[in-house]
Design a protein around this nucleic acid. Structure first.
Length: 550
RNA sequence: UGGGGUGUAGCCAAGCGGUAAGGCACCGGACUUUGACUCCGGCAUGCGCAGGUUCGAAUCCUGCCACCCCAGCCA
C-alpha cells in the first residue's frame, strides 16, 4: 500500500487546523441519486472519507436530490452499497430534501434582504437577458419589485398558483458580472406533477444546486466542501449565498480535477447512454467502470482504494492510463488470490504410459509464497487437458511450451513428451498422445533441462465452466472525442470461452473469492450468471505478459 | 474578443529560492515447476516558450503560447 499523497487539499486542511480555524474536519460525499457510482466517484469517496479518517473528522453522505425529474430512490440503496463496499462508513446520512423547509425560509430571508426576487421571465427570455460570454446581460424587468411583492409572489409559487416555467426565484447579484453564474442565477423553479422520492408531493417548487449546496454544507457543519473543477466558477456564488445569509463559520469549497481513464468513459451521461441503449448488459456489466461492474468482475475494493491513492489529487486535467488501474489490481491479487489451474481452450492429451484405470493424487500449494493459504489436492489421470495455445507442431527456440517430440513440465506434476498428433477429418488437431516421465514428480529430470511449464486439468475430474474474457470497452483512448461514442466501442470487449475446464477443487469455490488461474490471470465467479448449469467465471485482469515474439 | 483554471518524462505526480521524489509504462539483467511474482540496474543537464531578478530559479517578476471549463428553470 502506497503512501497517501499529501496533496494541496490536505495541506489546506493542515493549515486550517494549525491556525485554529477548525478543531475538527468535516467533509461530505454528495451524490445525486440518478445513476450508478463509478471510478470517478470512487476518487471523490476515497478523498472525502480518507480525509475524514486521517484527520479524525467526520464524513457525511448526502444525497443531492433537488431534481425529482431525474432521480430515483432505487439509486439510493445502490449508492449506499457501493460506498460500504469501498470500505467506508458515513457519519450522518442526509438528503438535501431534508432541508427543503429550511431552504424555503432562507429564501424568504434573502427576499427580505433585497437579495432575491421573483422573476416572471420564462426560460427563453432569461437566456436572452443573460448576455453572452463577452457581452453583459440586461436586467430583468421584474428585478426591482418590492420586497412585499416578492414575498407574496414567492408564497404563491409555493402554493402552486403558477404554472411550470412561468416564474422563478432569482438571486439579485449583477447582470453585468463577467462570471455568468453571478448574473442573477435561478434559485427556485416550479415543477408540478412530480413525485419526489423523499418528499412525495409536498412541494411544487424545487431549489437548484447552486442554492442548495452551500446551505446544506453549512447546516451540517461541513468545513471543506470538495468538488470537481467545473464548479470553480460557481464558488463566488457559493460564497455569496452563505455570506448573504450570515452563515459563520462558512464551509470552504475546494475544487480538484475529475478522473479520466483511457479507453473508457467516466461520465454519468455517457454511462447512462451505454446502459439505456443496450450496448452493455446493465449498470453492473463487468466491462463498465461502475463500482457495481467492477465488483461483479471481481475487483477487490482495496485495489480501487489503492488506485485512488496512486493517482493523487490535483487541479490539472489528466488522462490516467488503464495500466495504472490494472497494476493496482494485480498487486493486490498477487498477494491474496489462491492459485488454481484452468484450461480455457482445452486440447485433450492422452498419456499413453499412464494406466487408464489409475488416478494419482498430487498436492499443490495454494500460493507460491504464502504457506498460510494451505494446499489443495490435484488428480492426475491418463487423460488430461492442456490449452491449445500451449502446443505447436513446431516452434522456434523462444517458444517454451510443448512441441511435437518435445518436453514440457505440467505444473505441479510430471514432465511429459508429445509423441503424436490425432486429427479429425478436416485436419484439425483434436488430441495429442504422449508419455510422462514418472521420475520427474517433484524433481527435475536428470541430464536435461525442461524450460516450459504449463497448466493442465485432469479429464477425470474436470469441472466444466464458461469463462468470460474482457478487454477494454472502447478501442480508442478517448472515446467520443473524434466521433460518436458508440462508433468507438470495441467489438471484442467480451470474449467467451464456453468449453473451459477447471480443476476439481473449484467445484466448491466461493463466489466472492478471486482466484489466480495460473498463467492466465485473475478470475472470479460471476455473482449472477450461470451458463447451462455451468459456473461462469469473469477474468478480472490478465497476468502481466512480458513475453516478446509470438 | 469576457471570466475561471492548468502546463514537471510516454502516463500519473512530488517539488513551495539551494541545484528534478515516487508510482505506472518501457528497456536490460538475476531468480523461477506461473513467460507471473520478487530482486538489481537503466530511464528529465531538464520543468510549455521567451526574457528578467538573484551568488543560485521548476519555484519570484514580465510577456507570450497551448489545453480544459462556463451562456440549464441539470448537478
Amino acid at each position: 500500500m502506497s503512501e497517501v499523497q499529501h496533496h494541496f487539499i490536505r495541506q489546506q486542511i493542515d493549515q486550517d487546523l494549525a491556525s485554529g480555524k477548525h478543531q475538527q474536519i468535516r467533509t461530505r460525499f454528495p451524490p445525486e441519486p440518478n445513476g450508478s457510482l463509478h471510478l470517478g466517484h470512487a476518487k471523490s469517496i476515497v478523498l472525502n472519507f480518507g480525509i475524514g479518517q486521517d484527520y479524525a473528522g467526520r464524513t457525511n453522505l448526502r444525497f443531492d436530490d433537488t431534481n425529482p425529474a431525474r432521480e430515483d430512490a432505487a439509486y439510493v440503496a445502490a449508492i449506499q452499497q457501493d460506498i460500504r463496499w469501498l470500505g467506508y462508513t458515513w457519519h450522518e446520512q442526509h438528503f438535501a430534501s431534508d432541508y427543503f423547509a429550511a431552504l424555503y425560509d432562507y429564501a424568504v430571508q434573502l427576499i427580505q434582504r433585497g437579495k432575491a426576487y421573483v422573476c416572471d421571465l420564462n426560460a427563453e427570455q432569461v437566456r436572452a437577458h443573460r448576455g453572452s460570454l463577452t457581452e453583459p446581460g440586461t436586467d430583468s424587468p421584474y428585478r426591482n419589485r418590492s420586497i412585499a411583492d416578492n414575498l407574496a409572489l414567492f408564497a404563491r409559487m409555493r402554493a402552486g398558483e403558477y404554472a411550470d416555467g412561468s416564474r422563478t426565484l432569482r438571486a439579485k447579484i449583477d447582470m453585468a458580472a463577467p462570471n455568468i453564474n453571478l448574473r442573477d442565477p435561478t434559485l427556485y423553479r416550479i415543477r408540478h406533477g412530480l413525485v419526489h422520492h423523499q418528499t412525495g408531493e409536498a412541494w411544487c417548487i424545487y431549489p437548484l444546486y447552486d442554492y442548495t449546496h452551500p446551505i446544506s454544507d453549512a447546516l451540517e457543519g461541513i468545513t471543506h466542501s470538495l468538488c470537481t473543477l467545473e464548479f470553480a466558477d460557481h464558488r463566488p456564488l457559493y460564497d455569496w449565498i452563505l455570506h448573504n445569509l450570515d452563515f459563520d463559520p462558512r464551509p470552504q469549497q475546494i475544487e480538484f480535477a475529475r478522473l479520466n481513464l483511457s479507453y473508457t468513459v467516466l461520465s454519468k451521461r455517457r454511462l447512462t447512454r451505454l446502459v439505456a441503449e443496450g450496448h452493455v448488459t446493465g449498470w453492473d456489466d463487468p466491462r463498465l467502470p461502475t463500482l457495481a461492474g467492477l465488483r461483479r468482475r471481481g475487483y477487490p475494493s482495496s485495489a480501487i482504494r489503492e488506485f485512488c491513492h496512486r493517482i493523487g489529487v490535483t487541479r490539472a486535467d489528466s488522462l490516467v492510463e488503464m495500466a495504472m488501474l490494472e497494476s493496482a489490481v494485480r498487486d493486490e491479487l498477487d498477494q491474496t488470490a489462491p492459485r488454481r489451474m484452468a484450461v480455457l481452450n482445452p486440447l485433450k492429451v492422452v498419456i499413453t504410459n499412464y494406466p487408464a484405470d489409475q488416478t494419482g493424487t498430487l498436492t499443490a500449494p495454494n500460493h507460491p509464497k504464502r504457506d498460510d493459504l494451505g494446499a489443495r489436492t490435484l488428480t492426475f489421470s491418463r487423460e488430461i487437458y492442456i490449452d491449445q495455445a500451449d502446443f505447436r507442431e513446431t516452434a522456434n527456440k523462444k517458444y517454451k511450451r510443448l512441441v511435437l517430440g518435445g518436453e514440457v513440465r505440467l505444473r505441479h506434476a510430471y514432465v511429459i513428451r508429445a509423441d503424436q498428433i490425432i486429427r479429425d477429418d478436416t485436419g484439425q488437431i483434436i488430441e495429442l498422445q504422449g508419455t510422462c516421465d514418472p521420475a520427474t514428480l517433484g524433481k527435475n529430470p536428470a541430464g536435461r533441462k525442461v524450460r516450459g511449464v504449463i497448466q493442465w486439468v485432469s479429464a477425470a475430474t474436470a469441472v466444466q465452466a464458461e469463462v468470460r474474457l474482457y478487454d477494454r470497452l472502447f478501442q480508442v483512448p478517448e472515446p467520443g472525442k473524434k466521433q460518436d461514442l458508440i462508433t468507438d466501442l470495441n467489438p471484442d470487449s467480451l470474449q467467451t470461452r464456453p468449453d473451459a475446464v477447471l480443476e476439481a477443487s473449484l467445484a466448491q469455490a466461493e463466489v466472492t473469492i478471486p482466484y489466480q488461474f495460473e498463467r492466465e490471470g485473475y478470475f472470479c465467479r460471476d455473482i449472477t450468471d450461470t451458463a447451462n448449469g455451468k459456473p461462469v467465471y469473469n477474468r478480472i485482469v490478465s497476468l502481466r505478459d512480458t513475453w516478446q515474439n509470438g
